[in-house]
């Protein structure tokens, strides 16, 4: 048991500071939810109200909004034309799912070959992939941006999808898992006439499913939260991902504190899917975070 090293007294009073710490962890979420439902007059009230006095939905959509009246705010959904705020969700989901699925297919194929085949230069390929994990990825953003520009991919989905597909860490991690698959099993399949592609897809991948799941969470979390790259290659609303849209919204806060209502409404909506996802896949989440710190 983990608690082996703690003294019995730690259970009661000594734990108190940690409960206070837990409250400070939760507070921004509480503040996000309550601010999202505060009307314009209340959200900029000093001192702020800890409990919402007059809950309202005007931060999401304000039926009374009139650009000519000064003490009105534009609801979140009224801010964007076309498919509106939901479009950022769709962009983020599309990019995250595509990059996660494709990068793991590509990485697991490479991982299988590097784990179970020896060929001239295989060792060098392996070492280069590992060595590349030491490189801060920001080193690549300027040349990659120029590549996107030269290909005409700025403000297209291609720029969001393609450069993120080479995940060296996923290859490294999957190599370790795939090495655990028995050679006898693979040889038996080979004798039965299975080709390399079939061995990889039908035998190896099902056997390393936990590693794939952990890697999927790890990759998708990173893609879902990616901010700097979309910031560089997307300037329009049509291709903006959720973090990019939220970042632009948050920028508006510097100019006008009254924008806080719709911004908190947006952050609330953006946090809900991740929370549901986390509750559904809690164990894989933990595995995705611990990936790499313990043996694969």
């Amino acid at each position: 048991m983990v608690g082996e090293t703690r003294s019995p007294g730690l259970h009661s009073l000594t734990r108190l500071p940690f409960y206070l710490l837990a409250l400070t962890v939760l507070f921004p979420y509480y503040w996000m939810v309550s601010s999202a439902f505060k009307p314009l007059g209340e959200i900029t009230k000093a001192p702020p109200t800890l409990l919402v006095q007059n809950p309202t939905l005007t931060n999401f959509s304000n039926p009374l909004y009139d650009p000519g009246v000064s003490d009105q705010i534009q609801g979140l959904f009224q801010r964007y034309t076309g498919i509106g705020f939901a479009g950022f969700f769709l962009n983020s989901i599309f990019v995250t799912v595509f990059v996660t699925v494709v990068s793991l297919i590509v990485a697991s194929a490479a991982g299988y070959v590097l784990a179970k085949h020896k060929f001239p230069g295989s060792r060098i390929v392996f070492l280069v992939i590992i060595g590349s994990m030491m490189i801060p990825w920001q080193v690549t953003i300027i040349p990659n941006f120029l590549t996107m520009r030269d290909l005409g991919w700025i403000n297209t989905y291609w720029a969001l999808l393609v450069p993120g597909l080479a995940k060296a860490f996923a290859v490294f991690f999957l190599i370790q898992s795939i090495r655990g698959v028995s050679d006898e099993l693979i040889d038996a399949a080979r004798i039965d006439g299975a080709g390399e592609v079939r061995i990889w897809w039908q035998i190896v991948l099902p056997l390393v499913r936990p590693a794939l799941a952990a890697m999927a969470i790890f990759v998708s979390l990173g893609e879902w939260n990616n901010f700097l790259w979309p910031l560089l290659v997307v300037n329009d609303d049509a291709h903006a991902t959720l973090p990019l849209a939220l970042g632009r919204l948050a920028g508006a806060l510097s100019n006008d504190p009254r924008a806080a209502g719709p911004i908190m409404a947006a952050t609330l909506l953006a946090s809900i899917p991740t929370l549901i996802f986390f509750l559904l896949f809690q164990r894989q989440f933990v595995a995705g975070i611990t990936v790499g710190s313990l043996k694969g």
Partner: peptide, 12 residues
């Protein structure tokens, strides 16, 4: 989990 840009806006 529920961090990222959304919660930075809340911090701001």
């Amino acid at each position: 989990v529920a961090g990222g840009i959304a919660i930075l806006a809340v911090w701001k």
